[in-house]
Amino acid sequence: MFMNKNKIFILVFALAILFPNSIVLAAKIEQLDKTPIAGDYVIGPGKNEIRLNPGEQIVKILTVTNRYGKEMEFKIEIEDFAGSNNVQEPLVLLGQEKGPYSLRDFLHPETVEFKLQHGDRISVPITIIIPKDSQPGGLYGSIIVSTKPVVKPNLIDASTSNGNITIVSRLASLFFVRVNGQVKEEGKISNFSVDKSFYTQPNIIFKTLFENSGNIYLNPYGLLKIENIIGSKVDEIKIDPYFVMPGSVRQKEFITKRSIMFGRYKATLQMNRGYENIVDERAVFFWVLPWKIVSMIILIVFFVVFISKTAFDWLKNNFEIKRKI
């Protein structure tokens, strides 16, 4: 018996050395202490960036945590995603449709259906296998985690669907796989603007539009600096890296909220394209004229003018009276 155990151990050890990527990991469930009841579930990570050579494979772990306060059933689906030229929709999940840079056939979750008690967290291995004949470039797919449909009474229209409403929650973990080799990295800031030239409150909305004209996704990042009329820095916004899909555009908004701003300002955007350390620089100007401060200035000016005119008239009248005497 002891010899058999040793043989099994030696066999598993040898397989792990000879075929390190072929060992299948099982999904694991653990109970988390003091999990709050939030009426939802969370997955992680939300974004996975991976570099592989043709013919390589890797295993990533996807976690799902139940915070519904009760037992829930979940399922996993796989969908490709793509970018778009609609600034309101930078990413589109494609359902059963294959994307132009499809990854769906290369994503293999260890399990696709499971139950979780409240506070349970499952770790699901996701195996990514890149074919040997894959071309250099990007492949994009997502793991969609959804709940089993929850049926609730329809209080609006009891005649619809037998008086019931079906509610399904879906969350996605995005996979960006870059197959090593020569690719076309090309992109730039195509627009930088504010939503208006004059503000009455110091809540300024800046909009940037990044255009990716290459064949691989990019992660631009940068810095937004705001200076007053004499060139002193009044605010600075760090722009964390964000993805822009190939052949698409993406708009981002940034807001500065200062307690007091008055006068003319300059906003300078320095955006790194996410490759070869190329930085684009753009600038816009805007005015902040809070109505309370403007009203106060108008009242002060009016008061000064009134007092000055009154004093001038008084002095003029007194001077004329003395001349007559």
Rank of each mutant, 00 (worst) to 15 (best):
P90R: 01
F262P: 06
Y41F: 09
Q117M: 12
L171M: 11
G222C: 02
H118C: 06
Q270M: 12
L94A: 06
Q57Y: 13
T310P: 12
I298Q: 11
Y140W: 02
I167G: 10
E320V: 10
E281M: 15
K322D: 12
D157T: 00
E71R: 15
D120M: 02
E186G: 03
T166W: 10
P100I: 00
K196Q: 08
A172P: 01
M1R: 09
V301I: 08
N228V: 04
S84F: 06
R51S: 12
D80L: 03
V279E: 08
D40I: 12
A172I: 02
T111I: 14
L91K: 11
L15R: 09
S102G: 07
P149L: 03
S213Q: 00
V87G: 06
Q251A: 11
K196C: 08
S159F: 09
L11N: 15
F192D: 01
F106C: 13
L94P: 00
S134I: 04
I229C: 12
L91N: 07
N180M: 10
P20I: 03
L155S: 14
F106A: 12
V183F: 03
F192P: 02
A27E: 06
N21K: 14
T256Y: 05
V59H: 02
S248N: 00
M1A: 11
I307T: 13
S169C: 10
K257C: 10
D157Q: 07
G83T: 02
L52D: 05
V64I: 08
V234A: 02
I8C: 09
N85W: 07
D157E: 03
K148D: 10
S193I: 09
K47S: 06
L269F: 03
D157K: 08
G214Q: 06
L171A: 06
H108P: 05
Q88Y: 11
S197Q: 15
K70N: 14
I156Y: 13
T166V: 15
V288G: 06
M1V: 10
I29E: 01
A38D: 15
K148R: 13
V284K: 00
P100A: 01
Y68F: 14
Q251C: 09
I122P: 05
N6Q: 14
I237P: 06
I8K: 14
E73G: 15
V168W: 05
E281H: 09
H108T: 07
I307S: 11
P54K: 00
Y140S: 04
G274Q: 07
V244Y: 05
E30W: 07
E186P: 02
F243Q: 10
W314T: 15
R121C: 08
G141C: 04
K207D: 07
A38G: 12
F210N: 05
K60I: 02
K225F: 04
P109W: 07
G247C: 02
Y242R: 00
P149W: 00
F19C: 06
T65M: 10
F198D: 11
A158Q: 15
G214L: 04
I78P: 01
K152P: 08
L209K: 06
N85I: 07
I126S: 04
K34S: 15
T268G: 05
I237Q: 04
L103G: 00
S308L: 15
I297D: 10
P220M: 08
N4D: 14
D195N: 09
E110W: 08
L223H: 13
H108Q: 10
N86R: 06
I50A: 01
I230M: 11
M261I: 08
K238D: 15
A283S: 15
L52P: 03
L62T: 00
V92M: 07
V234F: 04
K28L: 13
I76Y: 03
M1F: 14
L62C: 04
